[in-house]
C-alpha cells in the first residue's frame, strides 16, 4: 500500500479499528474524569487531537534525526515525554497570551494532557510500526479524533444516564468503565475493515 490510500487507511484504522482508547485502553484517566460534562469533553477532545497530531510529528523528527542516528532508540521513552511536556506547556502559554476565548475553551485542558498516556502511546506505536513522517501525522490525527469520538460517545451516554437509577456501588467510574467495555466490544465490529500492525 502506497501513497494517499495508505494514509487514509492508517487514518481510519486509528479512528475505528485501533481506537487508542477503546482498543488499547490508553488515556483513561482524563476520559473518566471529564466525560461527565459534554462541553468540557468537546474542549478536551479538540485539545487531545491537536496535541497528538503535533507531538507525533515532533517526536518522529526527534526519533529519526536525533535518537536513531546515534543508536539511542532506548531513550525514546524519556525523550518523548519531555518533548510532549515542553510542547504542551509552550502551547498553553501561547494560547493564554494570544486568545482569551481559545484559552477559556481549550487552554485549561492542556495541563491535563501532558500526563495523558495516550499521547505517549501514539508516539511509541509510531516507532514500533515504523511509520514515515506523513503516516505518523495521519496516525496521530486519527488517534486524536478516535479519542475525541470515544469521549463524545461516552459524554452523550452519560447525559442519558443522569436520569437513570444506577446501583450505588457502580456510580461514577464504575459504570463508565462498564460502558467503555461495551463500546470497545461494539468497535470490534469494525475490525474486519482494516487492521494496524
Amino acid at each position: 500500500m502506497e501513497g494517499m490510500w495508505y494514509y487514509t487507511a492508517v487514518f481510519f484504522a486509528a479512528v475505528f479499528t485501533n481506537n487508542i482508547l477503546l482498543a488499547n485502553y490508553l488515556g483513561m484517566c482524563s476520559f473518566l474524569s471529564v466525560a461527565k460534562e459534554l462541553k468540557a469533553s468537546v474542549g478536551l477532545g479538540i485539545a487531545v487531537t491537536f496535541v497528538m497530531a503535533s507531538t507525533t510529528v515532533l517526536n518522529w523528527m526527534v526519533y529519526n534525526f536525533l535518537l536513531e542516528p546515534f543508536g539511542l532508540e532506548y531513550l525514546r521513552f524519556i525523550v518523548f515525554i519531555i518533548v510532549i511536556a515542553a510542547f504542551v506547556q509552550l502551547v498553553e502559554m501561547i494560547i493564554e497570551r494570544v486568545s482569551e476565548s481559545l484559552y477559556a475553551a481549550l487552554g485549561i485542558f492542556l495541563p491535563l494532557i501532558t500526563v495523558n498516556c495516550a499521547i505517549l502511546g501514539v508516539s511509541l506505536f509510531m516507532v514500533i510500526r515504523d511509520y514515515d513522517l506523513v503516516t505518523s501525522f495521519f496516525f496521530g490525527l486519527g488517534s486524536g479524533l478516535g479519542w475525541f469520538l470515544a469521549i463524545m460517545a461516552m459524554a452523550g451516554i452519560l447525559q442519558k444516564l443522569k436520569k437513570a437509577r444506577i446501583p450505588k456501588g457502580l456510580e461514577g467510574a464504575g459504570i463508565t468503565l462498564i460502558i467503555t467495555g461495551i463500546m470497545a466490544l461494539a468497535f470490534m465490529g469494525f475490525a474486519g475493515m482494516l487492521m494496524l500492525g
Partner: peptide, 24 residues
C-alpha cells in the same frame, strides 16, 4: 547518550525560560 539527553533537556529548558520571560 548522556550528551544527547542533556542537550535535549537543556534546549527545551532554555526554550521554556525564554517563553516564560517573553510570552508569559
Amino acid at each position: 547518550s548522556v550528551l544527547i539527553v542533556t542537550s535535549v533537556a537543556v534546549f527545551l529548558a532554555l526554550l521554556m525560560v525564554i517563553a516564560d520571560a517573553t510570552i508569559a
